[in-house]
């Protein structure tokens, strides 16, 4: 009996000490709440971390095709999120007395989509190939509420980056100057640009493959560029393939392929693509496209 009482007492003390140790580390003390050193705070951060990971995964899977891998936007397909959303778009909304928070603005855009996509962006001079689809399942889309939350968490993660000073890359854009002489082009580098294995002089990626496929008959957003090296010479009289391709990139609304124009008669292919590339970049791209026979 005495042994039992002794062992029982020991166990009682051991249980109390263990539970006490757990409680002390839980995160209930004020100092732990403030510097987030408790276990509960670690798990709260852990949940956020997992949510952001899932959001990043889903963004790459569903959103990057139009908004870019890093939210930098794809001309003609999806507007820039990172950092435009934080530096310009939301401050503009706030200035116009938009009553909701930035996080909710992002969530609404994802869940509800953007059926009326032309009104705002047309005033900015940008066109997009298609409206943003509805993603939230409460509105008939494919994603659950928690998936929308994860995506929002991930996108909000760019807010910190938005506050950072932007690296200015010095380069000379070719713009829409079709008369400037271009240097000799390197088709191999053009292919690397196309495959996004290398960057423009402006440190941006070439967005061409987001809208154009090189497979015959495959229309992504714009027409297939299979055998453009030969077809380009036969499309506009007076222009050989080289000139045709160059004009198509720098002045897309000059000649619009039938079926690829917007309601107000412009090309679906966005203007201003030349602003991101240097003369060499343009020359390399054209040389690569000329190899598509």
């Amino acid at each position: 009996m005495t042994t039992r009482i002794f062992i029982g007492g020991l166990l009682f003390v051991a249980i109390f000490i263990t539970v006490g140790y757990v409680l002390v580390n839980e995160g209930l003390l004020l100092v732990q709440e403030q510097d987030e050193s408790g276990r509960m705070q670690a798990f709260a951060a852990g949940q956020d971390g997992r949510s952001i990971e899932n959001g990043a995964d889903m963004f790459t899977q569903y959103c990057a095709a139009c908004h870019g891998d890093d939210g930098e936007g794809v001309p003609g397909k999806g507007p820039q999120l990172n950092p435009y959303l934080f530096t310009t778009r939301y401050p503009e909304l706030k200035a116009a007395n938009y009553p909701n928070s930035l996080r909710n603005f992002v969530k609404i855009a994802i869940a509800g989509g953007r059926p009326d996509y032309t009104a705002y962006w047309a005033t900015k001079g940008e066109t997009y190939a298609a409206p943003m689809q509805t993603w939230g399942d409460q509105f008939g889309g494919p994603l659950r509420g928690d998936q929308i939350e994860s995506l929002t968490d991930y996108i909000m993660g760019w807010e910190a980056e938005a506050g950072q000073p932007v690296e200015i890359v010095e380069f000379t854009a070719i713009g829409n100057d079709v008369d400037q002489e271009l240097p000799a082009g390197d088709a191999a580098r053009g292919k690397q640009l196309w495959d996004k294995m290398t960057l423009y002089a402006s440190a941006k990626t070439a967005p061409c493959s987001a809208c154009h496929s090189l497979e015959p008959g495959q229309t992504l957003v714009g027409p297939s560029l299979a055998s453009i090296g030969t077809r380009g010479a036969e499309t506009v009289s007076g222009q050989d393939a080289y000139t045709y391709i160059r004009h198509a990139i720098q002045l897309p609304s000059e000649h619009i392929v039938s079926g690829f124009e917007t309601a107000d008669g412009r090309s679906l292919m966005p203007e201003g693509l030349g602003n991101d590339m240097s003369a060499q970049d343009l020359a390399d791209l054209i040389e690569f496209l000329l190899t598509q026979q």
Binding site: A42, R50, I52, D57
Partner: peptide
């Protein structure tokens, strides 16, 4: 394939 890793995530 790719995967993302967050600093705070608990697995």
């Amino acid at each position: 394939d790719y995967v993302f890793a967050h600093r705070d995530a608990i697995y």
